[in-house]
Design a protein around this nucleic acid. Structure first.
Lengths: 120, 120
DNA sequence: GGAAGTACATACAAAAATGTAAGTATGGAA
DNA sequence: TTCCATACTTACATTTTTGTATGTACTTCC
């Protein structure tokens, strides 16, 4: 290396590293679930709302907007009445979704053992 | 299958599935970072606090306690003065940590491209 | 003798996340 | 003609999370 390389190493453990912000969005309470829900399908707002049990409309739209700004979710609106909007993952979104899914699947798949090992 | 099998399928998308609770703990703001920080080392409380930029003592101990209850973190206290406590991951903790790390690493490694693709 | 370091707990305060209810626009069904 | 459905937004209230400050116990260093 003869020039200034690697001046900046992204690290989620650093308080103001941009990767930390992105990581927080992705791992947010509803963010993870949106990513999982959209993994293989294009879905409409109300479908997502039904699939992700417990989200309010407010939180769902807020989360979708955030993930859209970050470039993980793609929003396609059709100008009709009643409104029709389709959400899907961008290529970046699919990459993160895959990893979030793996984490969720591992927990789901080992739930029995994990619960059995808990003491309190 | 001649008996009642698969009566219950864990699913993080279900509001009151236990896997959702565990998933929330693991993907909580500080939970993810604790899991990452402990990945290869045993660490003391104050080391963790220094490594995870931005955590307060309060949040760190709260998070550690939660992850310990879930069986992901192991706490070993030595009865000396000044206090000496070591935290490490249980085998379950290592499994989840691995997956959380993969997500974080992907984001860190693609940070430039992700940021470049953002519009707003 | 006073200060520092350790791993917390606890009380209180402030900030952030989330929920609830209502409103918007419009076409079509009942 | 009233109601429904869609995809939101906005205001307001409440809950949850997070932070700050302080205290504890004991030993060692200065």
């Amino acid at each position: 290396m003869d020039t200034l390389e690697k001046v900046f190493e992204p690290d989620v453990l650093s308080a103001n590293c941009p990767s930390r912000t992105l990581f927080n969005h992705v791992t947010s309470r509803w963010g993870v679930l949106v990513l999982i829900a959209l993994q293989n399908d294009t879905m409409r707002f109300s479908e997502l709302r039904r699939k992700i049990e417990g989200v309010s409309e407010r939180m769902l739209s807020q989360t979708l907007k955030l993930l859209e700004e970050d470039g993980f979710v793609d929003r396609k609106a059709f100008d009709v009445v009643p409104p029709h909007v389709e959400y899907s993952l961008t290529p970046f979104g699919q990459e993160v979704s895959k990893r979030v899914r793996e984490l969720a699947s591992w927990i789901e798949g080992n739930l029995g053992d994990i619960l059995a090992a808990k003491q309190p």
